[in-house]
Computed example of a mutant assay.
Amino acid sequence: MDHQLDVVIPVYNEGGNILATLGALARELKTPARVLICYDFEEDDTLPAVREHPETHAGLKVAFIRNSSRGAHAAVMAGFAASTAPIVVVFPADDDFNAGILDRMVALMRRGCDVVCASRFMLGGTMQDCPWLKAVLVRTAAFTLHHLAMLPTRDPTSGFRMFSRRVIDRIAIESDQGFCYSIELLVKVHRLGWRIGEVPALWFERQHGASRFQVLKWLPAYLRWFRYAFATTYLRRSPATVLMRSDPTRSAGLAAIRSDAI
Score class of each variant (00 low, 15 high):
M1T: 12
D2A: 07
H3Q: 10
L5I: 04
D6H: 07
V7D: 03
I9A: 02
I18M: 03
L22V: 12
A24H: 13
A26C: 09
L29V: 14
K30E: 15
T31W: 05
T31H: 07
P32V: 11
V35A: 11
I37D: 01
E42K: 15
D44V: 00
P54D: 08
E55N: 10
T56S: 12
L60W: 02
S68E: 15
A78W: 05
A78H: 03
G79T: 02
F80A: 05
A81P: 05
A82K: 08
A82F: 03
S83D: 05
D94G: 06
D95P: 04
D95G: 03
F97K: 05
A99K: 04
R104I: 15
M105A: 15
L108M: 11
M109A: 13
R110F: 01
R111G: 08
G112K: 15
C113N: 12
C113P: 01
M122D: 01
G124V: 11
W132S: 12
A135G: 02
V136Y: 10
L137Y: 14
V138G: 02
L148A: 12
P152W: 04
P152L: 09
P152F: 06
P152M: 07
T157G: 04
G159L: 06
R165V: 06
R166T: 11
R166G: 02
I168N: 00
D169H: 10
R170N: 11
I171E: 05
S175W: 01
Y181H: 11
S182T: 10
S182H: 07
V189G: 02
R191C: 09
I196D: 07
G197M: 03
P200W: 05
H208Q: 11
Q214M: 10
Q214N: 12
L219Y: 04
P220N: 00
F226I: 09
R227Q: 14
Y234I: 05
Y234T: 03
L235K: 13
P239F: 06
T241Q: 12
R245K: 15
D247L: 08
R250V: 13
S251V: 06
A252T: 13
A252Y: 15
A255L: 14
